[in-house]
Every structure is written in structure tokens, then in C-alpha cells.
Amino acid sequence: MSDMTNGGVQGPIEGYNSLDDLLTTTPTAGQAAMLLPTAPTAAYTHPKWMEPYFDPSTPRNVTALMGKSAYLSCRVRNLANKTVSWIRHRDIHILTVGSYTYTSDQRFQATHHQDTEDWTLQIKWAQKRDAGMYECQISTQPVRSYFVRLNVVVPTATILGGPDLHVDKGSTINLTCTVKFSPEPPAYIFWYHHEEVINYDSSRGGVSVITEKGDVTTSFLLIQNADLADSGKYSCAPSNADVASVRVHVLNGEHPEAMQTGSSGCQYNWLTIVLLLGLVLCYSRQCSAILPASLPSSSTTGTQMAASESDTASAATTETATTRKRCPAVKSCRQACSGQVLAKRSCHR
């Protein structure tokens, strides 16, 4: 059996009594020449497959809810002794290097677990200004980068058909509330009537809610056999969005177009217009009874004056004075008619 003290060679190595002598004794020039390899050895080259690289399956777009934490992941394979850093492109600011944070904004923090290859940038209480491009960088030569875009959204709740809904008495009130731009469905959605939470198990009965969660969460409020007491303000309040409201009008034979809904238009009361027209007709009949049959109409007089205006100016003045004496109500009639025309023009505008 070979002697393991001599490295598996039987007998002592020439000039050395043991392996310890070989390790502790400085060899002579001849011995060194004997130990050195005869051919030069090439420099060590690190294999390409051993270089750090990014996992391409890491999401490049992240959507976060405003006011909640945002998590940007960067998965690096074969990192070895290299360092991972996070950089914000908006101001080219280095946020983290390894596990250290290089910003006074305490909302930013880099997390890494030894048993994983993920380097996650956490942004607490995300704000709209945090949206933008972020760069995960490896300290290789040259550096390698992986870009992740952060979107900060504000969930929005909307009740379809608002702000006013008209339903007939005895029919079913069907209110639909949609929640959009939410990274995750709301934990709950409450419905309110007159600022009070709707009780689905109340003695009224006929009240139910159906909620469908997904990218767009939809909640349906159904109220059967609508009564006049069901009129009023209804609100949809998701757990992660602002409140949306609508006003419901339960009609008992009325026409919705006759109701005031705050829309712009003619602001004159119908009763006022009818009284104005009656006043004009009254003055017109008085003038017809006073004026003689031979008195030319205003259209005929206007045509004759336009034809010979320069020759009959004085005659027209005399005729106008005579007309005023015979019909003192003409002036009032004209003022009333002028007011009516102005009112109509305002309505059309």
C-alpha cells in the first residue's frame, strides 16, 4: 500500500524526508525547476454562464394603490460578490445599494432574504409623484440594468346613470356601482340611503345586493316594489375608493321631463309666459276696437314710409301722433310685445 505521507508515492521524495519538509522548506533552483510545469498556464476565464443575470420573468410594470405599499421586484441569478442597487430615473437618485438605503425618504427600503434571489424595493404609502421608471442595477463591468415602471392609481367608484335616476312607483330600483383602477378588488362595498347603511334584512324586504369582483368590481343594489319613501340619495362606498352618489326619484305618474333636475335652459315660469301672452292679446283687442277700419296696418305704413321716406317724413309724424291720440294703448301693446320677444330670445339662447 502506498505511503500517503508522501502524497501517494512510495519512498521519500528526493531531498525531503517527509511531506512536511516539502511544504516548509524552500526548494533549490533545480528542485523548483523540477516542480514547475513545463508549459505556461493560461489566465483563468470566468465562464459566461457564471455571470450575474436578470430573471426575464420578473414583472416590468407594477401598479400600486395610492396610500398603500408598492413592491418592485428584481430577481438576479448568480450574483456572487456583486451588488444590487435601485435607482430612481425621475431625478437619477440612488435609493438603495445592497441592503443599505441612500435617501432621507424613509418610505424607501430594500429587502433581500438569503434563501432567495429577489431584491425588492418597497415604497411605503405610495404617492402619485412616485410613479415612473426605476432601475435595478448590478455592479458588473459594464453595469447591467433591469427597468421597472411603477404606476400609482387612485381607485374610482361610479354609479351608472347618475346623477339623477327616475323610476316608476312599483317597479324595481336597479343601481350599478363600478370600481375601476384598483390593483385588487375592494374588501367590501357598503350601500347607503340618506347617509344610513342599507339593511338588507330589514322588515321592508325586497332589498338585495350582488357583487362581482375582478379587474373591474361591480356591485348591484336591487330594491323591488319601489315606493315614494325609497326616493332620495343613494351612495356606494367601497373600502378602497371614494364614495359615489346618485339621487333616485320615484314617480307617481309624473313625467321626468317636467321635473327640475338642475339642467340649464329657459328660466321663465310657464305661468308667467301665459299671463304675458294674455296681456298682449288683451291690448291688441282694445287697439282693434278703437282704431278705424280705414287706418292702414303697421306693415303697410312701414312699406310706404320706406318707399318715400324723404318726401313724407312730416306726414308720417302727423299720422303717428293721430294714431297715438286715437289708441293710447298702442304704446303699451308694443312694450308688452317687445318684452315677449326678448323673453323668447333668452329662452332660445
Rank of each mutant, 00 (worst) to 15 (best):
K325W: 10
Q224L: 03
V62H: 01
S308I: 09
L228V: 02
S202V: 01
D311E: 15
D3Q: 05
N61L: 13
K180V: 15
S2Q: 10
T218I: 07
T172K: 06
L23I: 14
V179L: 14
T320S: 11
N269S: 12
Q137D: 02
T322R: 14
I210V: 07
Q224C: 01
S308G: 12
G162K: 04
L228Y: 04
V197Q: 03
A336N: 06
T217L: 07
Y44T: 03
H93S: 13
S69V: 04
I173T: 06
T158D: 04
I87S: 03
H249I: 00
S99I: 07
S288N: 08
I159F: 01
G67Q: 06
S182A: 15
D55I: 08
G11F: 13
E184G: 08
V274H: 02
A131T: 06
Y53F: 15
E184F: 04
P292M: 14
A336F: 04
C333L: 08
C282E: 05
N174M: 11
E117W: 05
C337A: 08
Y234P: 00
S297C: 13
R75W: 06
D55C: 08
I94P: 10
V152D: 07
D311M: 12
T41N: 10
N240P: 09
F54L: 11
A258K: 12
S219Y: 05
G214K: 03
A289H: 09
V153F: 10
S18C: 13
S202T: 00
C74G: 10
P292I: 12
A306W: 08
S235F: 02
S332H: 12
A64C: 07
N17M: 07
T317Y: 13
R285H: 06
V154G: 01
C236K: 06
V143S: 14
Y192Q: 12
H255T: 03
H348K: 07
G262R: 09
Q304F: 14
T218F: 02
F147E: 05
Y102M: 09
T318P: 00
R90Y: 06
S297Y: 13
N17Y: 07
G15I: 04
V341C: 04
Y200D: 00
T318H: 06
E195D: 10
S203P: 01
K325R: 15
H46R: 11
N17I: 03
A229Q: 06
H113T: 07
S346H: 13
D168N: 15
M305Y: 10
A315H: 06
P183E: 01
Q260R: 05
G30D: 14
V341H: 08
V167S: 02
K128C: 00
W49C: 04
V148H: 03
S104F: 09
F181E: 15
D91T: 15
Q335M: 05
Y100M: 09
Q127G: 07
G253P: 03
I210F: 01
N78T: 01
T26C: 08
T103F: 02
V9F: 10
Q109W: 11
T323K: 15
G262V: 10
W270D: 08
C266V: 01
G232H: 05
I273M: 09
Y146Q: 03
Q127S: 09
S239F: 00
